[in-house]
């Protein structure tokens, strides 16, 4: 067994919280630059230029890229040969988020009671996922997810006999309904298969992958291409003011499912799709 002190997890989560919120991912930055270069619409171009400038200011001055520093999602892939020592792992993760968010002056966007909205002004707890994998390493991802786009996400339990076009229409319709509200150009994470909850988790994890990562599943890869094309025909554009830069990319993850069903989850994300990962 490899012993890992939870202090290392806390430090890693702190560092990743700071990085994810202030340094825009290289792949997202690349996609924005590409959209800026390729588009000719003047207003869209001006907005994309400001978004690039925003990323520069955030990185240089250690400011949050977006004031919505999210309900942070922390994802851990833990090698089965790892033994955590030195304290409680969950506490270490929560403390790491608190350390990072305090040091970065990030927003206290967490409310403890979802119904009464009592106990506000909190930085934590994050939403944490853990998965046991082979090996003796721990991979940690911190993804601050803004709620403007989270609110526009949808899930649908399709019939198993549904056509691929039906799935495509649902994904494109989800973006159409988001319209100008959720900070386009969007990044779209899609989860197909599994159960209700599994599809939702896959759609979230799809956002951690580099934008436009080609799906390993052939049908999903075809769907990915078609969805991307059709979303960019919606004429939503940056700030929703029109143009063909409506979507920076689509990622799809799939899982085996039941003969009676076909869950499809769409996690809408903004042009400031954020995450940072590290292996310890």
């Amino acid at each position: 067994m490899r012993k890992i002190n939870v202090r290392l997890v806390r430090e890693a989560v702190k560092g990743l919280s700071l990085e994810a919120n202030t340094v825009l991912r290289k792949d997202i930055l690349g996609a924005l630059k590409k959209a800026y270069k390729n588009k000719s619409e003047k207003r869209a171009k001006n907005i994309l230029k400001i978004l690039l400038e925003n990323a520069g200011i955030a990185a240089r001055e250690k400011r949050a890229i977006c004031q919505d520093t999210g309900l942070p999602v922390v994802d851990l892939e833990i090698g089965q040969d790892v033994s955590f020592v030195g304290g409680d792992l969950n506490d270490a993760i929560t403390q790491g988020v608190k350390d990072g968010y305090s040091a970065g002056y990030f927003r206290k966007s967490v409310v403890e009671d979802p119904i009464t909205r009592k106990k506000i002004n909190l930085l934590t707890p994050p939403v944490t996922y853990m998965k046991i994998v082979a090996g003796n390493k721990v991979r940690i991802t911190v993804a601050p997810k803004g709620f403007g786009s989270e609110n526009k996400s949808r899930i649908k339990m399709f019939k198993p006999t549904a056509a691929i076009e039906d799935i495509m229409d649902f994904i494109v319709e989800t973006v159409k309904l988001a319209g100008p509200d959720a900070c386009p150009p969007y990044v779209i994470g899609v989860g197909i298969g599994g159960t209700f909850d599994k599809a939702a988790l896959l759609s979230k994890k799809a956002l951690f992958l580099p934008v436009n990562s080609k799906s390993g599943d052939k049908a999903a890869a075809r769907l990915q291409k078609a969805v991307f094309k059709n979303i960019n025909k919606l004429n939503i554009g940056p700030m929703g003011l029109g143009g063909s830069a409506t979507c920076l990319g689509v990622n799809i993850l799939t899982a085996p499912t039941h003969i009676a069903g076909l869950p499809v989850s769409v996690n809408v994300s903004c042009h400031a799709t954020r995450s940072a990962a590290k292996v310890i």
């Binding site: 949050a64 890229i65 977006c66 900070c183 400031a272």
Partner: peptide, 13 residues
């Protein structure tokens, strides 16, 4: 009015 959504650092300046 609308302003530039997701450009929080830029607008803060």
């Amino acid at each position: 009015f609308v302003t530039i959504a997701g450009a929080g650092a830029y607008l803060a300046k």
